[in-house]
Amino acid sequence: MSTLTKILILLLTVSSFILCGIVVTYVGTADNYRQKYDDLRADRDSLSKKVKSLNKQVNEKIDQAKQLEDKLNSEMTAMRVEIGEVQGQLKDAEREKAGLLQKVNSWASIVEDFSETNDKQGQLLKNTLEELNEVQAEQIKQRTQLDETTVALVEKMAIIETLEAEKRRLLEERTDLQSRLDEYLRPFGKAAVAAVPVTPDRAAARPAPMPIPAVKDIGLEGLVTAVDMKNSMAGISLGKVDGVKEGMKFHVTRGDEFLCDIVIIDVDAEEAVGVLDLVQQQPRIGDNVSTGL
């Protein structure tokens, strides 16, 4: 075997190993295109199904959207109508609000005036209450004085009654003594002289005579409302509102009979009190009084 043959055998062997290695490496690392194809086709089929289902869903959604659009269009129409009505109501409400605001302003001014008036009235009431308190204090004081005066008057009246009883008793004794003296002196043709009291009689206390105004022209007529013979006083149903004044003289009559006169000493709004004068008969409640006979 020649050397060239040997060299060729070696080269052939080496090249065979190299080529076989390259082929094995290539084939071993080559991609499995069939597997890839199958995977891609399965993906395509699934995607096609998905596309179909999605198209169906899209169509359904489009139908729903159309229905919703129709519904919303109808609602928008109704809402536009309602908006028109609400705008009309809003205008009415604004008009009413303006009127109410005007009323509120007027009421506010009225309330303010009323508050001022109320403050003034409150101040006036406070002043009046203070005056009332003062008057009540004065009234209490006067009532106390009146009570004291009443007590003193009762005591005086008791003393007067005692003195009158004593006077009656003395008068009876004097009459008795006078009769006995007359019996004693009658056989001698003499008579006893009437006894003159050491202390002259005093008239009952009465107010000082006052100038009597001309009242005949007034022509007042009324009734006796109260009689107090113990103090020789009487009340009548006429007062200041009728024109009665202190010092006026009223004639008391019962039918055509003259009873007495009443000289007014105190006048109230609708009644008056006076002292009895020229008493012919005792007046009673209900007798007529007048300024002219």
């Binding site: 043959t5 052939l12 076989c20 094995v24 084939v27 080559a30």
Partner: peptide, 30 residues
């Protein structure tokens, strides 16, 4: 004429045959 080079040639032929078998197997498998 020389058993050494005959063995080397046999190895080369075996390698080629194994490669061919491997290629055929892979084609059939894939």
């Amino acid at each position: 004429s020389n058993n050494l080079y005959t063995a080397i040639l046999a190895l080369a032929v075996g390698a080629v045959a194994a490669t061919a078998f491997f290629v055929v197997f892979m084609c059939h498998h894939q």
